[in-house]
Amino acid sequence: MKQTVLKVEGMSCGHCVSAVEKALDQAGARGKVDLASKKVEIEYDESKVTLEALKAAIEDQGYDVVN
C-alpha cells in the first residue's frame, strides 16, 4: 500500500469531508481529511488505482488538488 498526502482547496465543512472521503472510497482508496490543514491523507494500492485517478475523483467533487 502506498501513502500520500494531498493539499485540497475548497473544503470548508463536514459535508466537504464526507464528499472527499466517499469519492476516494469509491475510487478504491482510503482517505482521511484534516479540514483545518486542508490536507487529505490517502492510502491506496498502486496496482489498482493511480494517484492521477484519485486526484480526478476529488476534483470531480468540485475541489482543487493543489499538489
Rank of each mutant, 00 (worst) to 15 (best):
H15S: 12
H15F: 10
V65G: 02
Q61E: 08
T50I: 08
K22D: 15
E52K: 15
G31N: 12
L35W: 03
G31A: 08
S12V: 10
Q3S: 13
A19P: 08
V65I: 10
G28T: 05
Y44S: 14
V65A: 12
A27S: 06
E52W: 05
K55R: 01
V66A: 05
L6I: 06
A23H: 00
D25Y: 06
E46I: 08
K32R: 14
K22H: 07
L51Q: 10
H15R: 07
G28H: 02
M1I: 14
K48A: 14
I42P: 04
V33C: 05
D64Q: 14
E59C: 03
A29W: 09
V5H: 12
E52Q: 14
V8S: 09
A29Y: 08
K22Y: 07
S18L: 03
Y44L: 09
S37N: 10
G14K: 03
L24C: 02
K32G: 15
S12T: 13
E9W: 14
L51K: 07
M11G: 06
Y44P: 08
V65K: 02
K55A: 01
E52A: 12
D34A: 10
K22M: 09
E21C: 09
K48V: 13
D60M: 00
K48L: 11
D45A: 11
A23D: 01
S12E: 12
L51R: 09
T4A: 08
S47D: 12
L51D: 07
E41S: 07
K2L: 12
C13K: 03
